[in-house]
Write a protein that binds this DNA or RNA. Structure first.
Length: 883
RNA sequence: GCCCGGGUGGCGGAAUUGGUAGACGCGCUGGAUUCAAAAUCCAGUUCUGGCAACAGAGUGCGGGUUCGAUUCCCGCCCCGGGUACCA
């Protein structure tokens, strides 16, 4: 009997589709399990083998959980706004919606061919007006929310208390005050501009070398009116929320770093000869006695005022150069420190000593107060600067027992760790922290500063406002009108969705305006009083649609509201979310932010959206390079005796592992794999390659391996001559139940590679035995079905079952079959395994010792030696120490 | 520089709380079947020595703890990812 996957698989896919096997009811009586994939951007290139990796993993879990009695929500959709369709439109004039729909159709076809058990009635598409209506609606919620810092909670703007002094200044002042509190605001912002894509990019989309993540071109700074979201208001909540999540530690770390919380103090320094204070932020107020100079950023508002006349020219030149520098590639120039002395001094509050104020671009205006006190002895950046400009280095923290102590005390070396304070007392001001350690020193200094009103304990975050608009056509339009009198208003809910206008031409304006600025009819509006207005021409970034899609799956066709709250309460949170690690920060942080706002407004019932997160590793491919490191396209490589040669030059090549790429001709298309080996083989191989979270190279021979397994399994289990009614062989029964248990455990722990291995082991034994009972065969079909669902269903039906096995209960493990009455112990002598011995599990230890030591095989190792120790670990090992 | 991962046969990878290193699969070798091949089946396959029984070595490197270390501790090396003057 042949394993005709090309006939079997489409037949079952049709069956599932026709019977709506995986349609998920909102049956609140059952325990729920929500399994989510990161939905794809439907590119024109179609699916690559990386997509099915995550999708298969979630599919296995979904199928397993259904058999375990869960009501499983497992949906799929498309994150379909995006640049490529728009660029294609610019070149060809094809409407992006046409391209997008075509690509979605192709993705759907490809995904269905893998046999994934999605509820297709819940499919969503971010470009569908019924979907983005609600994206626009959420934007309105953000706009109409302020963050109550005291209660750490977002609240409706209507609840914002307006201070009396603002009220007195009239309506305009009130509106301005409110604007400053909204989570979404419109402002002039210096932004990164990609001239090649004709769009702004968020800071996060600009790589460290100053290039645009999407296209690789260098970005430049530009000032534009933009929408921004005040995500930093939620910094503390976003940080705290990480604590209860079952997420990879690496992702949690990355989010923590991104949020970048630091605690310290803001301290005021009096500027000598000016009636002004200079406020600095420091995490190390304890090192005030070591402050030998101060630095303010070139953009600091006091930079010019502070500068004495004699230094004016020099300082102005420096500030100009620094401004220019920020237009260039700042990171490259960051290696050597530059700066200029303002000629002015500030008074150190702890000892009333004057210290010089410098202007230098190693201090950033955007963080803290844009000014620092510099402690070169205990901060590496300040140390470098001080050495560059010959500024004194005063050590105030004795590192004690450290090799470099002498150099550190002399100020020749920087010390940033803990120690004991020296030179840290002033009779004049009364502060003395000598002898304390870092922790106590920080505490005491802050108390001292606060008592005198010189400073306050402060918390700072690295995270910045989120730039939330793009100069694009193919995105969600903002439901916003800018009126001629300067008022900004949002559309009423009943006027949503605001659709995109059709355009003749999709190219952006040279000035950086979105293509929407050309849609004259759409653009201009007049209200009932004849006031003229202009619609917002920016559109939302691609993140917008993906920020909340997991919520829409819950109730995707609801036209009355975003979703039914009862359904939301039942299904949320997402129990398992699998996707690529590239979304560790941005998507997952933005989503969490929106979710928390919706939670505060009472729209969703959970504080966090994704309970468990897992990142699948990237699938790579073998590639080849010459001895000089030049990559060679795979079609120019031949293998001989396990070595690789260039077909043209004959040079020996080295096999390496690299990302799949068109230029290397090593891209694998899932369609081809399915055509040659079937969907079950594709699924199995993707899971069998190695641990889900690791990166691993694709190897065609590996596919053959799992194909072979399915073939063998089919040949044996589909042949009813091998199936009998009666009592199962003991060895088979025992292994079967071990396998049930192992497969279940491994699936729960996302260790699909070893689950498949266990199925192979059982298959091998069954074939060796030549026959199994019908019950065993049915059980095998069941435990095989999560990983190879087509073959599972096929076998199940061959045994005479009329219904799908997708909802058959997962087989129970018969514990009694797993009990051993004896165990084969490995016997070691001095830790080295020498032989094995079968011992009944109930034998008492003294007898075991006797049996082992008198065993003929043991004599060789005991000869002329004394037994020093006899180690016996039940069901593990016996180790005899001799000497 | 800093923060995370990861280094195990020819290859992908297994190995509960420290307890038989190399499961499973690929590849390779030999055999069966075949006119022959493909497919299939059987046996072997960490390395070194030996016909073999067997012995020695072995989880990136160097130390340590332990009866026993891929697993724990200390010090390094290499690879991958993130981040980069955040005071």
């Amino acid at each position: 009997m042949e394993y005709n996957f090309a006939e079997i698989e489409p037949r079952w896919q049709k069956y599932w589709e026709k019977n709506k096997t995986f349609k998920t009811p909102d049956d609140f009586s059952k325990p729920k399990y929500y399994i989510l994939d990161m939905f794809p951007y439907p590119s024109g290139a179609g699916l690559h083998v990386g997509h099915p990796e995550g999708y298969t993993a979630t599919d296995i879990m979904s199928r397993y959980k259904r058999m375990k009695g869960f009501n499983v929500l497992h949906p799929m959709g498309y994150d379909a706004f995006g640049l490529p369709a728009e660029q294609y439109a610019m070149q060809t004039g094809t409407h992006p919606a046409v391209t997008t729909n075509r690509n979605c159709d192709n993705f759907r076809r490809q995904i269905k061919a893998i046999g994934l058990s999605y509820d297709w009635d819940r499919e969503i598409n971010t470009t569908d007006q019924h979907y983005f209506k609600w994206t626009q609606w959420i934007f309105k919620q953000l706009y109409n929310t302020w963050f109550d810092k005291e209660n750490q909670k977002g609240r409706p703007i209507s609840e914002l208390p307006i201070p009396e002094e603002i009220k007195g200044d009239g309506e305009k002042a009130i509106n301005e005050y409110i604007s400053e509190k909204r989570l979404a605001y419109y402002d002039n912002a210096q932004v990164w501009w990609c001239d090649s894509c004709k769009t702004v990019c968020a800071n996060e989309e600009v790589l460290t070398d100053g290039s645009h993540e999407k296209c690789g071109n260098q970005v430049v700074r530009k000032n534009l009116k933009q929408w921004l979201l005040r995500i930093p208001h939620y910094a503390e909540r976003l940080l705290q929320g990480l604590n209860g999540l079952d997420w990879p530690a690496g992702v949690i770390d990355m989010q923590k770093n991104w949020i970048g919380k630091s605690t310290g103090a803001e301290i005021d320094f009096q500027v000598e000869g000016l009636n002004k204070n200079l406020r600095v932020y420091t995490t190390r107020p304890d090192t005030l006695f070591g402050a030998t100079y101060m630095v303010i950023a070139p953009e600091h508002e006091l930079a010019e005022e502070i500068t004495i006349p004699e230094k004016k020219t020099e300082v102005e030149k420096y500030i100009k150069a620094a401004a220019l520098k920020s237009d260039l590639d700042r990171t490259d120039l960051a290696k050597e420190k530059t700066g200029v002395f303002s000629g002015r001094y500030a008074i150190n509050p702890v000892n009333n000593q004057p210290i010089p104020i410098w202007i230098a671009d190693y201090v950033l205006m955007g963080y803290g107060t844009g000014a620092i006190m510099a402690v070169p002895a205990h901060d590496t950046r300040d140390f470098e600067f001080a050495k560059e400009f010959d500024i004194p280095v005063v050590c105030i923290l004795d590192p004690k027992e450290v090799d470099e102590r002498k150099n550190i005390l002399a100020g020749d070396k920087c010390w940033t760790e803990d120690g004991e304070y020296i030179n840290s007392a002033s009779e004049e001001t009364g502060l003395n922290i000598n002898g304390l350690n870092k922790e106590a020193g920080i505490k005491k200094t802050i108390e001292w500063l606060e008592e005198r009103g010189l400073g306050t304990a402060t918390v700072n975050f690295k995270m910045r406002d989120w730039l939330f608009s793009r100069q694009r056509y193919w995105g969600e339009p903002f439901p916003v009108i800018h009126w001629e009198d300067g008022e900004v208003s949002l559309l009423d809910d009943e006027d949503l969705p605001l659709l995109l206008p059709d355009l003749e031409k999709y190219s952006p304006g040279e000035s950086g305006e979105s293509p929407l600025a050309n849609a004259e009819e759409w653009l201009h509006v007049t209200d009932k009083n004849g006031r003229k207005g202009r619609r917002e021409t920016n559109t939302m970034p691609q993140w917008a649609g993906s920020c909340w899609y997991y919520l829409r799956y819950i109730d995707p066709n609801n036209n009355e509201r975003i979703f039914d709250p009862e359904k939301e309460k039942y299904w949320m949170p997402v129990d398992l979310y699998i996707g690529g690690a590239e979304h560790a920060v941005l998507h997952l942080l933005y989503s969490r932010f929106w979710h928390k706002v919706l939670f505060d407004l009472g729209i969703v019932s959970t504080d966090e959206p994704f309970q468990k997160l897992f990142n699948q590793g990237m699938i790579l491919a073998f590639a080849y390079e010459t001895s000089t490191g030049a990559k060679v396209s795979s079609d120019l490589v031949e293998e001989r005796d396990g070595k690789y040669f260039h077909t043209e030059t004959g040079d020996e090549l080295k096999q390496i592992v690299a990302k799949m790429s068109k230029s290397l001709k090593n891209v694998v298309n899932p369609d081809d794999v399915i055509e040659r080996y079937g969907a079950d083989s594709l699924r199995l191989y993707e899971m069998f390659m190695g641990p889900l979270d690791e990166r691993k190279p694709w190897a065609e021979n590996g596919v053959k391996g799992v194909f072979n397994f399915l073939n063998r399994a089919h040949r044996f289990f589909a042949d009813t001559n091998n199936i009998f009614e009666g009592e199962e062989d003991k060895e088979v029964a025992k292994l079967l139940h071990q396998t049930i248990q192992k497969v279940a455990n491994d699936i729960e722990n996302l260790k699909f590679n070893t689950a498949i291995s266990a199925l192979m082991v059982f298959n091998n034994l069954a074939i060796k035995k030549g026959k199994v009972t019908k019950q065993t065969a049915e059980t095998f079909a069941k435990i095989l079905s999560p990983v190879a669902p087509h073959l599972g269903e096929e076998l199940w039906s061959i045994y005479g079952n009329k219904e799908t096995l997708a909802y058959e209960p997962w087989p129970e493990v018969d514990e009694s079959l797993l009990q051993e009455d004896s165990f084969e112990y490995p016997v070691s002598f001095n830790g080295k395994m020498r032989f094995k011995i079968e011992i009944p599990v109930d034998m008492p230890q003294p007898e075991i010792e006797k049996v082992v030591l008198s065993d003929p095989k043991a004599q060789k190792w005991l000869e002329g030696k004394t037994v020093r120790k006899f180690i016996f670990v039940p069901k593990k090992i016996i180790n005899v120490v001799v000497g």
